[in-house]
Design a protein around this nucleic acid. Structure first.
Ligand SMILES: [Mn+2]
Ligand SMILES: [Mn+2]
Ligand SMILES: [Zn+2]
Ligand SMILES: [Zn+2]
Lengths: 137, 137
DNA sequence: GCAACGCATGCAATCGTAGTGCATTATTTC
DNA sequence: GAAATAATGCACTACGATTGCATGCGTTGC
């Protein structure tokens, strides 16, 4: 349990009981989760508290939000090099149209994009939809 | 006006009064629009009718939806080669963090993505956020 | 022309998620 | 331990998406 506390403190997040539960839950996930997912899995937790917990996590560079085109925001743990000053784990997200799961693909790099003249890039979101490895078989 | 009717019929969409109004409006836009945008601009139109109109357009390959991370779905006219069997105008979308407009960049091609083994790509959504040419100055 | 049919439209209502306000509770500081 | 500060829980609001249903309207067969 001390391990979880340390992970929070490294990101300057005070380790409350609720936050430890949420972090523990996030560490066990293999795909990005919505607030509703969390609410269902972690019984007895208030949705708004979860909302503010992941918001805090996001602001401190512990989780990033994933936009997978379903309309509901999902969250996943960041790679280690994210901080409160910004998220640096630029990677692809994959949405499986069969199992509806959304995966981070941190190994898959985003290629350089040539924008038209005058456009100034600040951020890139690359979402690939299709069948995940488990569903393809 | 016959021109508009023809455009609908080419996509197998029956040209009703409402649909002509919506298509005319979409042709005049320089950025993707939300249902609320349409509702405000086209007075006296019912939101649900607009919803179903663009849905019909989308199903027939006349418009495509644009997910720009704002949480609200936007729509824009397709390139000519989209049909009811699928949208084929794979291109980048650009969201300007200053003016909040979302542009299709149909000239900017999406580079090839190498996915991990087992993943099967069906669709790609590439969203770039930053400053548009007008706002950068 | 007219009746019957099917699709399009408009209105009301529901649903689901995001977000805010505020009182209560826990934690830190002195 | 008391005061100050931060986190939590509950109530409620906001808003876009979506459905159900009644009505309107154009097309077709007669
Ligand atoms: Mn990710
Ligand atoms: Mn587009
Ligand atoms: Zn899958
Ligand atoms: Zn702009």
């Amino acid at each position: 349990m001390k391990e979880l506390e340390k992970q929070l403190q490294e990101k300057q997040i005070k380790p409350t009981a609720m936050r430890l539960v949420v972090l523990d839950y996030l560490l066990k996930q293999t795909s990005a989760v919505s607030l509703t997912d969390m609410e269902v899995s972690l019984k007895k937790t208030d949705r708004v508290t979860l909302y503010r917990t992941v918001k805090t996590f996001e602001e401190h560079g512990l989780v990033h939000r994933v936009e997978d085109g379903t309309g509901v925001t999902k969250f996943a743990l960041c790679q280690p090099d994210c901080t409160a000053n910004g998220h640096h784990d630029l990677h692809i997200h994959f949405y499986c149209t069969n199992c509806k799961e959304t995966h981070c693909l941190p190994r898959t790099h985003i290629p350089e994009i040539m924008l038209p003249d005058g456009y100034d890039r600040q951020e890139i979101n690359l979402l690939v939809k299709g069948l995940c490895a488990a569903c393809k078989k």
